[in-house]
Amino acid sequence: MKVVIVEDEITASENLKYLLDSIDSNIEVLTVLDSVRASIEYFSKPIEAELVFMDIHLADGISFEIFDKVRIDAPIIFTTAYDQYAIKAFKVNSVDYILKPIEEEELGNAIDKFKNMTPTKAKGNVEIDSLIELLNANKKTYKSTYLVHHRDELLPVKSDDFAYFYIDTSIVKGVTNTNKTYIIDKKLEDIESELDPAKFHRFNRQFIINKNAIANVKFYFNGKLVINVNPPFEDRIVVSKAKATEIKNWINS
């Protein structure tokens, strides 16, 4: 089977190639395209590819822009970090998808699905306009501002201005990029559901951290990680071995 990968992250494309080879050594990756522009140029000519893996966010735009310029005569499997609301749109339009970070089992299932498709269903020119409309309609909006208590007043603080949220003796506190600490009258679970998962992540039971606040990641004993943040936190922020891979993939996304 001959495939084309459209992906702008080198680590992601290398990981996908490795997984494809692990699943079936006969799969040949013809090329890796890292932008909308490069994809348009490539697909404007006849292609040998039988299957295309396509990330949604590319270096110079959204991959759906490719379909405005060229016709892709091959089925497409989108690789995406969209939340579950947006993913419903892919199912409605019979477009397959793999949620990042890609797991070998899920990738194998997607390839098996492709192999079992009838010729009439195995086509790449899906209704992209309808797909975009559904994605926009189902796209979740995230909390942009928190109203916090400060002495005898309430202050609006932008969500992106928080470096991290943590639990301190059953009280949730938010620390800003300028090292100001505010009490947040919410559960950490509620805050987690309100924030953009591309920017904030739950690292353990105690912490939610803004990706921009991560100073470095250090290896700890027994496969654990220690996360150092800015502004610095007085104690170690430890990530369990079970969650270490997930955290590294999220930081690297």
Rank of each mutant, 00 (worst) to 15 (best):
I40L: 03
K113T: 11
F64T: 09
F90P: 05
K88D: 12
S94R: 14
D96H: 10
A59M: 03
D73Y: 12
Q84H: 14
E41K: 06
I98C: 08
Y97L: 13
I72R: 03
D83R: 02
F43R: 05
I102G: 13
Y42C: 07
S39Q: 04
I56M: 05
I102E: 12
F53V: 09
D112K: 15
I77M: 06
I98L: 15
I40P: 01
S44P: 00
F53D: 00
F53T: 03
K113G: 03
H57A: 02
I47S: 15
P101F: 01
F90M: 09
F90Y: 13
E41C: 00
A110N: 07
E50G: 14
D60Q: 09
Y97H: 10
E104K: 15
G108S: 14
D112Q: 15
E104W: 04
A38Y: 05
L99W: 02
K69V: 03
K91E: 13
S63I: 00
F114S: 01
N116F: 11
E105W: 01
I47T: 15
D96P: 01
E104F: 01
S39I: 04
D112A: 10
A89M: 04
D60P: 10
E103Q: 15
N93M: 13
F90L: 09
Y97T: 13
F43G: 04
N109M: 15
A59S: 13
E106K: 15
G108T: 14
F53L: 07
T118I: 10
L51P: 11
L107V: 12
I77P: 00
D73M: 13
V70F: 05
I102D: 11
F78Q: 06
F90A: 10
K88Q: 12
E103L: 06
F90D: 11
L58N: 02
F78E: 08
N109P: 04
M54L: 08
A110V: 08
N109R: 15
K69Q: 14
H57L: 04
N116Y: 14
N93G: 03
D83I: 07
D73G: 11
K45E: 11
D55Q: 00
S63W: 01
D55H: 01
D73W: 07
E103W: 02
I102F: 08
L51G: 08
I111N: 08
E104Y: 04
T80H: 03
I87A: 14
I98T: 09
F43S: 06
L58P: 03
E48F: 12
P75V: 06
F53N: 00
I47K: 10
Y85D: 12
D112I: 07
E48R: 14
L107Y: 09
E50Q: 15
I77C: 04
M54C: 10
G108E: 14
P46R: 08
N93F: 13
E106I: 12
T80E: 03
T118Q: 09
A86P: 01
E50Y: 09
D73Q: 12
D55I: 07
N116A: 14
I56G: 00
D68W: 01
L107Q: 10
M117W: 10
P46L: 07
D83S: 10
V95K: 06
K88C: 02
F64I: 05
I40C: 06
G61E: 06
I87H: 06
I77W: 07
A81D: 01
K69F: 11
R71A: 12
I40Q: 06
T79P: 00
P75D: 08
K113R: 14
A59E: 11
K100E: 08
Y85M: 10
K45M: 09
K115A: 03
P46E: 09
I72P: 00
I111R: 12
